[in-house]
Design a protein around this nucleic acid. Sequence first.
DNA 1: TGTACATCAGTGAACGCGCGTTCACTGATGTAC
DNA 2: TGTACATCAGTGAACGCGCGTTCACTGATGTAC
Lengths: 233, 233
Amino acid sequence: MSDVRRSRAEARVHQIETIKSTSRRLMAKSGAPALSLREVAREMGLVSSAIYRYFPTRDDLLTALIVDAYNDLGASAERAMARCVEGDPRRRLHVVAGSIRRWAKRNPHEYALIYGSPIPGYDAPELTIAAATRVTLVLATIVADAWRGAEKGVRAVVDVPIHDGMLERRGFERVMPGVPDVTRARAIIVWSQIFGFVSFELFGHYKGSVRNTNRYFDFVVDEMANLVLPTSV
Amino acid sequence: MSDVRRSRAEARVHQIETIKSTSRRLMAKSGAPALSLREVAREMGLVSSAIYRYFPTRDDLLTALIVDAYNDLGASAERAMARCVEGDPRRRLHVVAGSIRRWAKRNPHEYALIYGSPIPGYDAPELTIAAATRVTLVLATIVADAWRGAEKGVRAVVDVPIHDGMLERRGFERVMPGVPDVTRARAIIVWSQIFGFVSFELFGHYKGSVRNTNRYFDFVVDEMANLVLPTSV
DNA sequence: TGTACATCAGTGAACGCGCGTTCACTGATGTAC
DNA sequence: TGTACATCAGTGAACGCGCGTTCACTGATGTAC
C-alpha cells in the first residue's frame, strides 16, 4: 500500500487522510483538546512543520475532524435507515437510534468532539452545519414518512396549541410536511432524548440508576416512538 | 476585607476559597481543560509553587471545582423546590427545571465541567457522586410527592411491563417509594431530557430548529410532566 | 522526446511561549511548658 | 507572661517537558514548449 507509485494529487489526498486518521487515533488516547500537530507529525515520521503543507493551522485540522465526524455519523444513520422498510416506523426509529448509539460507543472521542463541550478557543465555522444536519434529517424523515403513510384524520395522541414563533418554521415545512405542529415540536424532544441518553451513558451519569443500558435504551426509544408516531386508531 | 487579621485556620479557608473562585473566573475565559495552576497563582499575586500548599496537584483542584459545581447546582435546585408548595407538582417541575437551566446559563463552564465531555486524563473520584446526586434527588422527590398525594388507584397514563434488571432497584425504592415502575423509568427520561435540553441549548445544537428557546423549554417541561405525573382522572 | 522552469513535499533550526512539579529557604504564626 | 520549638505560608530557582508557527532550504515531481 505505502510504496505504491502515486501522482502528486493522489499522494496529497492520501497524506491528508493519514493526518486525519492519525489524529483520530491520538484523540482516542487523550481527547480533542490535547490533540497536537507535533505529535501527529511524530507519529507519521514527519517533521512537525510538514503538517502545514496540508493544514494551515490546528483549528483547520479540528474543523476537518468535526466535519468528518458529523458526516460519518450521518452516513451511518442513513445506512441503517436504508436497511429497513418504510412501513414500520417504530422499528425504523429503533434501528436508526441504535445505529447512532453504536456509532457513539465505537467513536467516543469523536462523539465528544461534536456533542460534548465546545473546545475552548475554537469556533465552528458555518460549513460544519450542513454535515451536522444529516443525522437529524434521518430522524425527521422517519416521522414524516410515518405521518404520510397514516390514514387521513389521524391526530397526535395529545394535542396542545403550539406558539407560532417557537420553532423555525422554514426548515420544518420542507422536512416534515403535513405533520402536526405539536408532533414537530415533539420530534425535537425525541432528537434531544437520543443524544441526551448517549451523552449520559458515555459520560457515566447513569451509573447508580440504570443497570441494563441496552434494555433501558429500548424502553426510551419506545416511549419516544409513542410521542411522535401517529396512533393507528 | 483583605487586611483583616485572621487566624491561620481562617486564612487557610479563605485562600482555598480564593483559589477556587479565581479558577472559576479563569475557566470562564478558556474552559476547564486549559485551567493552569500557574495562571491561578499569577492572578492571585502568588508564586506558582504556593498553590501546592493548598492543592497537592492540579487534579485535586479540578475535583474540588467539580464537587463545588454539583453542590452549587444541587443547592440552587433545592432552594427553587423550597419556594413552591407540594400541592402543584407540575408547577414544581417547571420551577426546578427552570432553576437548573438558569444555573447552567449563569455558569456555562462549570456546567460543561460536570455535564460536558470528561476531561481527558482525569478520573472523577467516588466522592463526587454524593454531590452529583443532589439535583437528581430533587427531581425524584417531585415525582414521589406527586404520587403520594394522588388518590389511590391512579395509574400511569400508559403502562408497560418493565424488566426487573433494567434499573438499579435499591435507590428507587428509597427515593420514589410507591411509584409505579414504568413511572420510575420515565423519571429518568425526564432527567435526561432536562439536561439534554440544556446541553443542546448551551452547545448550540438548537440553532436552526428552535427559535424561542424559553417557550420551547416550557413546552418540553410540560410534556415531561405529562410523562411522569399521575393524571387526576 | 528532450529541455527549462515552476510547483510543491518535506527538512531542520529557531522563536517565544507556557506548563506541572520539586526543593531548600525565610520569616511569621501558633503551641507547650 | 515569657521563652523555645514546631508548624506552616509563601519564595525563587530550577528541571524537563511540550506546544504552534515561521522560514530559508533541498530535491523530487510535474508542465509547457
